[in-house]
Design a protein around this nucleic acid. Sequence first.
DNA 1: ATTGTTAGTGAGTAATTGCTTACAAATATA
DNA 2: TATATTTGTAAGCAATTACTCACTAACAAT
Lengths: 173, 173
Amino acid sequence: MTEKQKAILDSALKLFASKGFDAVPTSAIAKEAGVSEGLIFRHFENKAGLLNALMQVGKEKLQEEMEALSQINKAEDKIVAIMEMPFHIDEEDYPFWRLVYSLKWQNEYYDDEMGKPMRDILIEALTELKYRDPEAEADLILAYLDGFATTVLLKGDIVDKDRLLQTLRKKYK
Amino acid sequence: MTEKQKAILDSALKLFASKGFDAVPTSAIAKEAGVSEGLIFRHFENKAGLLNALMQVGKEKLQEEMEALSQINKAEDKIVAIMEMPFHIDEEDYPFWRLVYSLKWQNEYYDDEMGKPMRDILIEALTELKYRDPEAEADLILAYLDGFATTVLLKGDIVDKDRLLQTLRKKYK
DNA sequence: ATTGTTAGTGAGTAATTGCTTACAAATATA
DNA sequence: TATATTTGTAAGCAATTACTCACTAACAAT
């Protein structure tokens, strides 16, 4: 991975995340990265290939996170850790998550598979805790999660993240 | 509002909602509506004007909903009604809300003002119920709301809406 | 040193984009 | 009925789009 490849990925992520995939021409990415437009296609084949490369990097990060999660042994702690995830997203990863969430709304790119491993972990933990309907309970938590993530990623500078998390913590006690 | 104007708006909403505003060319809208492309610009000036017209219609619908909400006099009922809103969205309005939520993720179109009146109503109700930090509590509920809406609009056919709502209802009792 | 491979450029390309314009048909107004 | 206004079309426009291609520069392997 050369410097220029990294520059292309960085610029693409930044632009895709703020304006949306379809609104960003490859010419703009090249300009932002200080690179000729042709180089994008040399390295990533086409515009969709760029997006794939971006998602690949992100998915690897996510997988690490999931493994860390599976280290937690108490079911309750596991659920809490999942619910608080959006509040602990590293700020440098905001662009990636903004991109993921924005793509969800476009039929063509919608990819549900990303959330599945988390759902499985949740169901397992909820079953262990003898919840009556672990699946519905898991889907409800995942819905919360989407909401928290949206709020953090979109209104992070308006809404007080810490105060929100504090209020949330009081709820499950 | 002529038949063809309505056809244009319908087609635009359908396409924008499923593919995203930037991914849909005016030519595709015209074709879907069975209309010449020029007519779009005659009636709506430009592509952004089309979007504005769409949002205008939607905002009027929303305003009606808000007035219905203010009719509820018990603060508790008001909060419950707000929290359950996403589960009671009329299915014919799904495209509109999908469009709204997809636009949130694009800097250029992001419009926060739409959620404000709801936040005010929430804060008022929570203050009446003597919550310690009504603002944070309101923001938390709004975060839930975003999550519920996302789930209903995006996974409405995968996740069992009614079962989810039932599970949610058990929580606040 | 020579050769092969990869990294990088810049000028193209055909197709598509949002939008305009000249004109015709329909409809309202007098 | 005559006239003005609105609704509609088809062709065309400059600009932009994703992508290609011929080429050079850098670097590695033999």
